[in-house]
Amino acid sequence: MKIIIAPDSFKGSVSSTKAALAIERGIKSVLSDCETICIPMADGGEGTVEAILAITGGKEIYENVNDPLGRPIQASFGWVEEERTAVIEVAAASGLPLLKKEELNPDQASTYGTGQLVKRALDLGAKKIIIGLGGSATVDAGTGLLQALGVKFFNQHEEEIIMGGGRLGEIDRIDTDELDIRLLQTEVVIASDVMNPLLGEEGAVNVFGAQKGVREDEMDVFESGMNHFANVVVETVQKDYRQAHGAGAAGGIGFSLLSFLNARLQSGFSLISELSNLKEQIRTAQIVMTGEGKMDKQSLYGKVPIGIAKIAKEFDIPVCAFTGKFEGDMQLFKQHGIPIIVPIVDGPMDVTTAMNRGEELLEKAAERLMIWGQAFSKVIK
């Protein structure tokens, strides 16, 4: 029996790599002679670097950079020497996990640190840079990232602006003369499964602003600033990506990468699927196991388990998903190709305890499933 194990990370608890290995241990404790293939997954957010490095065999590079509030930290990115490819997660230098809740400051928070990671990748001779958009603490539309790479922003008095999300409305002119010329010879790929446009009800501010600290009574102000910035960008580059899929990802970083770096957008899931030859692996399997920290109606909109199930459905391969918490209509998940969802919590416990015991709970859940499968083979089939 061949089993593909391809989970997303259980955010805040277990990385996709560790989740896959925990599930594998649970399976092997019951079916020691079965073939298991672990393929850690991600969607462009947390775990993207780890997942790609697990597939490609690259390494982590560490760099001293600025966090969202300009404080010095050490952040890392993935580096695949043979391909001269860098894999950067926005969250590594500009992410929500770097700030306490009381530190959220959308006015000042900047993506400058992410730009510093991009610059280091260029110094290493990168020919391709994959930037995973997800988990940012910013709504600066990537202006900080661009500043780290040489772009300058001026107000109407020709004073250079130190960018943050609250200053987008002040921009009167954008100077790209000193944008790092090496980017002209570098392929930039946006890895994201967020398809939101830059502006409007489904845009960067209105959908994601609250999690970055934008108060309800500030939404219109930040949206106005984002709209003003977009107008200046369109006038500067003579290209309009405001409605492009993914332009609103990570507080508008997608828009700036498309506009200034000629980036191309690729689903984070599809990127990792291609690198891991996921479709062919699933085609020759008997069972596929996936999972994520929480499965609810949002999971139905392109999250990793649904992407896995879509591929498996082509070959009529059954899919089981593990999750820390399930909320939703089981029939809808069944229609999407996931007939079995296994909550990993095996008894009453608080969220903190469950998250701290993520690997252990996953392993035990996989073991239980295998035992059930042996007793009730029709359920697995």
Score class of each variant (00 low, 15 high):
72 P>M: 00
127 K>F: 07
176 T>P: 08
135 G>Y: 03
180 D>S: 06
321 A>G: 00
216 E>F: 07
315 F>T: 10
376 F>K: 12
130 I>L: 09
14 V>D: 00
183 L>S: 05
18 K>H: 11
329 D>P: 01
312 A>E: 09
279 K>G: 09
318 P>G: 10
41 M>Y: 01
330 M>I: 15
341 I>Y: 01
264 R>Y: 12
329 D>S: 12
4 I>N: 04
140 D>W: 01
145 L>P: 04
191 A>S: 05
94 S>L: 12
95 G>L: 05
379 V>F: 13
264 R>S: 13
379 V>K: 12
27 I>W: 03
45 G>C: 03
378 K>H: 10
330 M>R: 13
231 N>I: 09
120 R>T: 10
220 D>R: 10
375 A>E: 12
283 R>E: 15
185 Q>M: 11
82 E>R: 12
89 E>M: 07
355 M>P: 01
26 G>F: 06
238 Q>R: 13
92 A>P: 07
136 S>Y: 11
264 R>F: 11
80 V>T: 11
133 L>F: 01
65 V>R: 12
240 D>I: 03
10 F>M: 03
60 E>R: 10
120 R>L: 04
263 A>Y: 11
71 R>I: 03
283 R>D: 10
55 I>G: 00
56 T>R: 14
324 G>R: 09
216 E>S: 12
76 S>W: 08
251 G>N: 05
197 P>T: 08
166 G>S: 03
306 I>K: 03
24 E>W: 01
278 L>G: 08
240 D>G: 00
178 E>K: 14
114 T>F: 02
289 M>N: 02
301 Y>K: 01
213 G>K: 01
87 V>N: 04
223 E>D: 15
289 M>I: 14
36 T>E: 09
127 K>N: 14
52 I>Y: 12
342 V>F: 10
256 S>K: 13
157 H>Q: 15
286 Q>G: 15
277 N>K: 14
193 D>V: 08
221 V>L: 14
258 L>D: 00
209 G>S: 02
266 Q>R: 14
114 T>R: 00
220 D>A: 13
258 L>C: 02
281 Q>D: 07
33 D>S: 13
163 M>R: 01
218 E>D: 11
197 P>I: 04
241 Y>D: 02
98 L>S: 07
264 R>W: 06
362 L>Q: 09
22 A>V: 05
93 A>C: 08
174 I>T: 05
36 T>R: 01
372 W>T: 12
200 G>R: 01
307 G>V: 12
118 V>T: 08
66 N>E: 15
193 D>T: 06
110 S>K: 03
291 G>I: 10
120 R>C: 04
113 G>L: 01
19 A>F: 05
66 N>Q: 13
252 G>V: 06
247 A>D: 04
35 E>G: 08
148 A>R: 13
113 G>I: 01
204 A>T: 12
305 P>K: 10
354 A>L: 00
353 T>I: 05
119 K>D: 15
7 P>V: 03
68 P>W: 06
56 T>W: 06
295 M>C: 08
250 A>V: 02
321 A>Y: 04
162 I>P: 00
149 L>K: 00
325 K>V: 11
